[in-house]
């Protein structure tokens, strides 16, 4: 069983929704990332999403665009991100790590080289924002053979026909993009969300993660009642923007946000177990 599947079994068994913080690797500086990953786990993260910096992050809002620019100013590229995962794995062999980014750095490294290196480093899932299942057959095959889950997005605009297609290709979990927009957009509406997730559950047994637009603990708690996992990105990355030099303060602030969300999510699930 993959680390991702095992982790979702654990969270399901304990009646919790998983919390998945996203941070851009190398932001605000390369040596912050690995200690930050450990901090986030200590604060209550169940899985980690690590953003691979890209010069043209088309699906991201201003917060993550700037994070990419800060990381690239230090030269943090895909090779370094894999090094970071390897370093993280030396002391944490349980927490799944998902790489999230854009295809071109992978193409440049070469899909085979990338997949081998990712597997060796201890990567558990790969989500390429600009790689829909239609274009992914080769890479998805390589990933699966290496024991890495190809993770795909489902959006509010995904038709029923496409949903079948995406669900068939997806492994690990399905990432539901909660709104039409880029990362960091306005808050989502949890009521509409529930109905959409039901439609996906009707055709897939995979856990459902929800991301884009989860800004605060209250929203995280509301989403935790209907989803298997809550992904929080811009709300954390924004803190790196506020503390570009003070790395200790950034790490503490990021951990505090995760802790607050964790508490609110668990309280919401305990209050209404029927929603699970």
């Amino acid at each position: 069983m993959s680390r991702i599947a095992r982790r979702f079994e654990e969270t399901r068994a304990s009646g919790r929704a998983a919390l998945i913080p996203f941070v851009t690797a190398g932001d605000p500086a390369p040596d912050v990332t690995v200690p930050l990953m450990h901090d986030l786990v200590d604060a209550g993260a169940d899985l980690l999403e690590l953003g691979v910096p890209f010069s043209d992050p088309m699906a991201d809002g201003p917060v993550i665009q700037l994070a990419c620019e800060r990381a690239l100013a230090h030269g943090t590229g895909l090779r370094h991100v894999l090094e970071m995962v390897r370093e993280f794995r030396q002391t944490d062999t349980d927490t799944p790590v998902v790489l999230m980014g854009y295809l071109n750095p992978v193409e440049r490294m070469g899909p085979e080289v990338f997949v081998n290196a990712a597997a060796q480093a201890g990567v558990d899932g790969v989500l390429m924002v600009d790689l829909p299942p239609e274009e992914c057959e080769d890479l998805a095959g390589l990933l699966e053979r290496a024991g890495i889950d190809p993770i795909f997005l489902v959006a509010p605009t995904t038709s029923a026909v496409r949903l079948q297609h995406v669900a068939a290709a997806a492994r690990g979990f399905i990432y539901y993009v909660s709104l039409k927009g880029v990362t960091g957009s306005q808050s989502l509406d949890p009521a509409i969300l529930g109905a959409r997730l039901e439609a996906i559950r009707a055709i897939s047994d995979l856990p459902l993660g929800v991301g884009f637009g989860i800004r605060d603990a209250a929203t995280a708690a509301a989403v935790a009642q209907v989803a298997d996992a809550v992904v929080v990105g811009s709300a954390i990355v924004r803190l790196a923007e506020q503390h570009p030099e003070a790395h200790g303060q950034f790490r503490a602030a990021a951990a505090a946000v995760v802790r607050e969300m964790r508490t609110a999510m668990d309280a919401a699930r305990t209050a209404t177990p029927a929603a699970v």
């Binding site: 790689l131 829909p132 274009e135 997005l153 959006a155 995904t158 993009v177």
Partner: peptide
């Protein structure tokens, strides 16, 4: 060529 975009745009 092809179509390398985020899922939200595939329908459009």
């Amino acid at each position: 060529g092809g179509r390398f975009v985020a899922e939200t745009l595939m329908g459009a």
